[in-house]
Structures are given as structure tokens and as C-alpha cells.
Amino acid sequence: MGDFEGAKKRMHEDLPTSSAAQGPHRTGSPGLHIRPATRADLDQVIALDEEVTNIAKPDYWRSLLDRRPGPEQFFLVATEAGASAARILGFMLGEIRAWEFGSEPCGWVYTLSVREDARLHGIGQALFDAMSDEFRKAGVSKVRTMVGRDSRLHMLFFRALGMMAGPYIELEKEL
């Protein structure tokens, strides 16, 4: 974990909400472009999230994109390459969290959305690969997520990427 602190500093310098901050990620598909989200993406992100979840949360997304992201926070969007680059096909949020629940620093993927008409074209996997690259560059070697047991689509997706049950179990209680 020796590289972690240095990587945090490096990323902090690299991560304003500007598309110029980080170079685009290479993807397996030449027609696909992965880059950090910018404020100009806000309306599309809000609309896509509402389309997928059926819940409008404009204030939530505005707060995420208006504030300067922390050094371990990543907000990636996938667009078509070329003329249609302005159209967002999907996005993913991730963050490096350390020492919560006794866990060493690891990357967490906590949001993934892909347009319904763009699914089954490797966009989710490209976002996941790009996010994994960011986590690796930051010095962590493990990625985690949390999926509802009944969320078949997300469960199949993350399983297909090779993710297996980790050492923690989520517990909860009605208050």
C-alpha cells in the first residue's frame, strides 16, 4: 500500500471536473469513449438515472458534479466516439474507501447506469475496466460493490466480470 498516499496526491491534482484532467480511457470498442464526467453532462446524467431508476434526483447529481471530487472519487461517462460524443450512453461512480469496517483501502463501485437501448454492447464492462484502471493507478488492488439480492441484471453483470462474494455480509435492522 506504499503507493497509495502518493497516488492520492497525484489524483487530487488530476481530478477537477474537467474533461481535460484525465485522458480518455482506451476501450475494447473503437466506437466507445470513456472520460471523466463534467458539469456539462449533468442534464443527461439526471435524465438517464431517472430513466433507469424511475426516481428523479436532480439535487443529488447536481451536488456530485458541482463540487470538486475528492481525490479518491471517480465519475466516468461513456459516450460514442466521434460526432455523437456528446450523447452519454452510460456512467459509473466509484470511490476508494479506506479502513471502514476494518477494510484496507479498496475501490468501491457504487453506481452504474447504461441506456436501455445501448445495453449488451460492452459499455458496462468498458466503464468497469476504466474504473478498475483508476483504482489500480491509485494503488489499490481490490474492487467491491454491493448488489441487491433481487437485482438480477446487476448481479449477472458483476458476476460475469468475475466478482465473487467477499468477506463481509451487510447487516441491517428496522428502527
Binding site: 448481479m155 449477472l156 460475469a160 462474494a165
Partner: peptide, 19 residues
């Protein structure tokens, strides 16, 4: 049971082949 069922229901043949 719920956890077992969810695990079995989330691993496809294609995923299993990679495993």
C-alpha cells in the same frame, strides 16, 4: 436459503466456464 438461492441464480453457464 435466500443467499444460496441468490448465488446460484447469479452465476450463468458462461460465467461458470470462466470460473
Amino acid at each position: 436459503d435466500d443467499i444460496a438461492r441468490s448465488t446460484l441464480g447469479s452465476i450463468t453457464i458462461a460465467t461458470m466456464k470462466r470460473l
